[in-house]
Measured scan of single mutants.
Amino acid sequence: LIVDEAINEDNSVVSLSQPKMDELQLFRGDTVLLKGKKRREAVCIVLSDDTCSDEKIRMNRVVRNNLRVRLGDVISIQPCP
């Protein structure tokens, strides 16, 4: 998924579009594992966002710094076991 700027300022939340959440079989409030660069990982709570496009994930600056990614970078997402 492509990293995009978050609207809310919550450090533990990322936003996906509802069709993408359905495709990944995620529900609102699920915890997910995000994988960024240099084997960096972060655990976040996923919320749906109608304004977010299907191929993007919204996260704020703190999460991006933790993953060592910038806007427009590609990250992977998976549900936490």
Rank of each mutant, 00 (worst) to 15 (best):
C80P: 10
V69G: 01
C44I: 05
S12F: 10
S53I: 05
S17A: 05
V32E: 00
N11C: 08
D30V: 05
L34A: 04
R39T: 13
F27G: 13
K20W: 03
S15Q: 15
D30S: 05
E23R: 08
V74T: 10
V62R: 11
K35R: 12
D10W: 05
D50K: 07
R68K: 15
P81Y: 05
L1V: 12
C80H: 09
I2P: 00
L24Q: 02
D50S: 12
D73S: 12
S12G: 13
D22M: 09
D4C: 15
S17I: 01
P79L: 10
M59E: 01
S15L: 13
V43Y: 15
R58S: 04
K56I: 13
I7R: 10
P81D: 14
N66Q: 12
K20Y: 02
S76G: 11
C80R: 09
I2T: 13
V14S: 01
D22P: 01
V13N: 04
C80T: 10
Q25K: 11
C80D: 09
F27A: 14
D30W: 04
I77L: 13
N11S: 14
I45G: 09
I45L: 11
P19Y: 15
C44V: 11
N66C: 03
V14G: 01
C44L: 11
Q78G: 09
G36Y: 05
V13S: 10
P81F: 05
D50W: 05
D50P: 07
S12I: 06
L34G: 03
K38Q: 09
E5W: 09
V46T: 06
S53C: 10
N8I: 10
R61T: 12
S15W: 08
E9G: 09
I77R: 00
R64G: 02
D10S: 06
T51M: 06
I75T: 02
D50L: 06
S53P: 06
G72S: 04
V69W: 00
S48D: 06
K20I: 12
S17E: 01
V13F: 08
P19D: 07
Q18M: 15
E9M: 10
I45K: 12
L34R: 00
E9D: 14
K35Q: 15
A42T: 08
C44P: 00
A6I: 12
R28G: 11
V69C: 15
R39K: 10
I7N: 05
Q25P: 00
N66I: 06
D22Y: 09
L67A: 02
L33N: 02
L34D: 02
Q78L: 12
E23D: 04
S76I: 05
L24I: 03
V3W: 00
V62W: 11
N8W: 06
Q78M: 08
I45W: 05
P81A: 10
L71I: 14
S53H: 07
K37N: 06
A42G: 05
G72R: 05
S76V: 13
V74S: 10
L34P: 00
S12R: 10
R61K: 15
T51K: 09
R39G: 13
V69L: 07
D50Y: 04
K35P: 01
S17K: 03
S15H: 10
D50Q: 04
R64F: 05
V43S: 09
L34S: 01
V13W: 12
R28V: 13
D30G: 07
K37L: 11
D4E: 11
L1S: 04
E23G: 08
L1A: 06
I75L: 06
V46K: 02
E9I: 07
K35F: 04
K20C: 08
R68V: 07
S48Q: 07
C44F: 08
I75A: 04
C80N: 15
I57E: 01
N60F: 01
S17C: 03
E5K: 12
S12C: 09
N66A: 09
D54F: 07
K38L: 13
K38M: 11
N65E: 11
I7G: 12
V13L: 08
N65W: 06
S17W: 01
L16G: 00
G72E: 04
G72C: 03
E55S: 13
V43W: 13
K56H: 05
K56C: 13
V3K: 02
E23H: 05
N66R: 12
D10R: 06
P81I: 05
L67D: 01
I45F: 11
M59W: 00
V32S: 01
K56E: 08
I45N: 14
N66P: 00
D30E: 15
L47N: 13
L47C: 09
I57C: 02
S12H: 08
S76R: 10
L67S: 00
L71N: 15
K38T: 14
I75M: 05
R28P: 12
V3A: 04
R39Y: 06
I75R: 01
L71F: 05
S53D: 13
D30C: 14
K38N: 15
V69E: 02
L33K: 10
V3D: 02
R64Q: 07
S53L: 11
V14P: 00
G36Q: 02
V69T: 07
V14L: 01
E23M: 15
G29A: 05
V14R: 01
S15F: 15
N60M: 02
P79R: 07
A6V: 06
R68M: 13
F27L: 13
R68T: 06
K37D: 06
R70A: 14
R68F: 06
C80L: 13
Q78F: 03
E5N: 11
D50T: 10
K38D: 07
L67C: 05
L26I: 08
D54W: 04
D22W: 04
C44N: 05
E23A: 07
R58F: 05
V63C: 13
A6Q: 13
T31A: 08
I7E: 15
V14N: 01
E5C: 11
V69P: 00
L1F: 15
A6N: 12
Q25Y: 02
V74R: 14
R58N: 02
M21S: 00
E9S: 14
N60K: 03
T31D: 04
E23L: 06
E55T: 10
A42M: 11
Q78K: 05
E9T: 07
T51Q: 05
P79W: 04
V3E: 01
L71E: 15
V32F: 01
G36M: 04
L47A: 15
V62D: 12
L47K: 10
Q25L: 06
K56L: 10
L16R: 01
V46N: 01
C80E: 08
I75E: 02
V69Q: 02
L67K: 00
G36A: 10
I57P: 00
S48H: 04
D4Y: 03
D49E: 08
V74N: 14
I45M: 06
R39L: 09
E9K: 05
V74A: 13
C52Q: 11
L24T: 02
D10F: 07
I57A: 03
P81G: 03
R28Q: 12
